[in-house]
Amino acid sequence: MAFLDVRGVSKRFGGLMALNNVDMSVEKGEIFGLMGANGAGKTTLFSVIAGHVAPTTGEVHFNGRRITGLSPSRICRAGICRTFQIVRPFAGLSVEENVRVAAIYGSGRGRSRASRDTLVNEALESVGLTRQRAGLAGGLTLSGQKRLEIARALATGADLVMLDEVMAGLNPTEIGEMLETLAELRRSRGITFVIVEHVIGALMTLSDRILVLHHGERIAFGTPEEIGRNKHVEEVYFG
């Protein structure tokens, strides 16, 4: 069984089929890209995996364990953490406090104070927020808050991190830095990433494999080269 295994997941919102019988297998240590136009169901799929939305049918297994129906906090403690496309900082807390809460409660529960400190410092360092750690999270720029989302997810000690459009709104230099950061995190800590990105160049560079969704259905799957050559993807994506 794959590290993260999504089997036959469907989600219906009233008359709308947001996800229709989607399968997805993510291997440990890979960077897995999720592609699709607006409304394709990418964020809904994230929400189903992270436990924010219950699937109408289907199951999600992680690390050999069924996680469908668990609360988001329990899924986080099982080792999966997501970020939000529309950032949700703890605005009134300092940057460091934001990250520390994640280190206290995430899958790193029961860690000693010292190892929590390490987790916090590493998370801040890897996204380049060390210098702003004492400032209020609400005072960060959008790019800063996007990076804080990632730092918080990392500080939970998650083995699988799902990033929802963390590059949107960043300038090309920042995107370059972000790509390096993610690649480095995978190398050094063996973190598995699932990423949703509108910045297709970034997705193609970073991902080992890509799944393309369209109107809630899986229309293509393969390496970035295969997806790039896929006529069907070209049609629905570029019109």
């Binding site: 992270a50 986080c76 703890f90 809460v101 409660y105 918080r152």
Partner: peptide, 22 residues
């Protein structure tokens, strides 16, 4: 730790739940 979790809940309940706060 309870206080840190409660502060996170005050600031943003969904985000708190997401980073593992019950």
């Amino acid at each position: 730790a309870l206080g840190a979790g409660l502060a996170a809940i005050r600031e943003n309940e969904v985000a708190a739940e997401t980073v593992g706060v019950p």
